[in-house]
Amino acid sequence: MTDISSKILIIVPSHNEEANLPGLLDEIFKTGADVVVINDASSDNTEQVARDKGIQVLSLPVNLGIGGGVQTGFMYAVRNNYDIAVQLDGDGQHDPSLLAKVTAPVISGEVDCVIGSRYLPSDKDENYKTPVLRRLGMHFSTGILKLASGLVIHDTTSGYRALNRGALEYFVKCYPTDHPEAEALLMLQQAGFRIREVGIKMRTRNNGESLFTFWKAAFYPLRVIIGFIGVFSHPWQGNKK
């Protein structure tokens, strides 16, 4: 069980986010939580921008994608004895002021993982406009997740997540690479971790472009299916203990 004195780390995976990071980091400072920026082999000044703010930076020498980047943050969290880690994208779409809402169920020990959801029926973000391709991909992964495990998650692609120590240690051992969100949920569910969604408002990206391109979206359903096959066929992943 996690208590209110929990040590919280915010993990900010970033790839070419020099324009979005300063504002986001200023907002994160206000929460009082520790923060680490994962610089995923950016070609711009992402690393320097974070260092100028006095932030710890994990700079990857080669681009590992969102999965490899986030897993590096989980490794950092476990090695530095954090109780809870919150993943918060470097594009500024996730509002750090919602940190307390996202972490509360983990801090109280009710669940092991919380997803910040835009589409929770009881607390839907009506203002957020999801691009068509992303929406299709998300409906697909939501449907297949429900089919495969019975788990109903309305926002499978949300990267705003809080994890407790047990889930962190589990993901240090194995975490999916590209577009890992839906697969990671299935892994957690199969391993017996408890997952819950909380409603959040998400902002639109101010600068830069999404990495979810047309071709990535076209292959997304196949990737999800393959990822799910991988989860079901690796017996060692099936137990959180």
Binding site: V57, S59, L60, P61, V62, L64, G68, M75
Partner: peptide
């Protein structure tokens, strides 16, 4: 390579 890159990033920090 992924494991090495992650360990290198953590060591550099």
């Amino acid at each position: 390579i992924k494991t090495l890159a992650q360990e290198l990033a953590l060591l550099r920090q």
